[in-house]
Design a protein around this nucleic acid. Structure first.
Lengths: 203, 203
DNA sequence: GTCTATACTCGGATAGAC
DNA sequence: GTCTATCCGAGTATAGAC
């Protein structure tokens, strides 16, 4: 149940919808469940947002807006490579500690409706890695780091930050780590990931 | 449509169910869709498998059996560390090139029903990483590799192999890579991942 | 074993009073 | 804006003929 005191019904609905959609997905979510969580009537959902699809789209839109840009901004900033990688890992891990369901939610949508995803939530975004790729190539040319394909480096950075959150349920199960243990594990990774990457590529 | 000539109806149903469940998930899959894909009547599904849930469980059971053990076998084998990492990446990438939907399918189930997942599909499996952890620690003690937490190394290996497949739709979208390009990209990673990891940890 | 027809439930959406 | 009551399509499951 979302805090019933919190301002408008509209706001409560969005909070509830986010919680339900992110954990159950579009197909698995129930409007009744969202209504209960928001502490309001099911009919109100349709009053504020005409359909389940429209409500879902709103949530997905917000999710995409969180998932990418903050971090693309770091990649395209003007920090030196090493600091950039540190900053990237720290930002991403912190964000995902706050929003652990976000990756699976977005990745499921992209996997289920690739065309729709591209059209609706990518659209006019330009390729976000060209700036970073240039920087990597110049570092390679200067012999500061080993020759490495920039895109391989980017997907490595993303993988190391995001995957642990996606696999958390299996990971805690197989290793016997509990929830606080996982949090500590990920906080450690904020420094471990950059160290691992820099050790891998520095000359 | 599954090859209508292929042996028993039972077999065709399983093939069709795998295809539909893996791409749509439990909640999004439709029995009618599975029946059409198998080229048989919807009632036959219930004749062979009493319910949607039972059919899903069968598919999930097979999926879990593919997702883990082959690779846990490598981790617990008696290869030297470097070869083990090479072998691990090659095996996993090859397997996922054949079954690209497998990770998201299994991870969704684990995320949606953690308790059920643990009970039903984990059960009597022992912790699969202790053997490998011992090996890593002995390599660290021998000063062959840098001090590294074994579990951090394991999750790194898994992340680097699996995540690119999960994020493929977004990745191809943002980079402009097409499907053959992605395949080439992943085949490259079969050697890039072990090189990256070894560079990161070797003394 | 395979089909057609149908029962039954669930859940998204709307009508209409207040 | 908020509620109750209800409609109606979709989808799982079963009955029963062949």
């Amino acid at each position: 149940m979302v805090d019933p005191e919190s301002k408008t019904a509209q706001r409560r609905i969005l909070t509830a919808a986010k919680r339900v959609f992110l954990s159950k997905g579009m197909a698995g979510a129930r409007m009744q469940d969202i209504a209960d969580t928001a502490g309001i009537n099911k009919a109100m959902l349709h009053y504020y947002f005409r359909s389940k699809q429209k409500l879902f789209d709103k949530i997905m839109s917000d999710a995409v807006a969180n998932f990418f840009p903050r971090v693309v901004g770091i990649l395209n900033g003007d920090l030196p490579l090493a600091e950039k990688i540190q900053c990237f890992a720290a930002e991403y891990v912190d964000m995902l500690l706050e929003n652990p369901y976000l990756p699976l939610f977005v990745l499921n949508e992209a996997s289920l409706h690739p065309a729709r995803f591209a059209k609706r939530w990518w659209k006019d975004r330009e390729s976000p890695f060209t700036e970073f790729a240039r920087q990597v190539e110049s570092e390679v040319a200067a012999r500061n780091i080993k020759p490495v394909h920039p895109l391989q480096l980017v997907i490595n950075m993303l993988s190391l930050c995001i995957f642990p959150f996606i696999s958390r349920p299996i990971w805690t199960q197989t290793t016997g780590i509990d929830e606080e243990g996982f949090r500590a594990f990920m906080l450690l990774r904020k420094t471990e990931i950059p160290r691992f990457i820099m050790d891998a590529i520095k000359n």
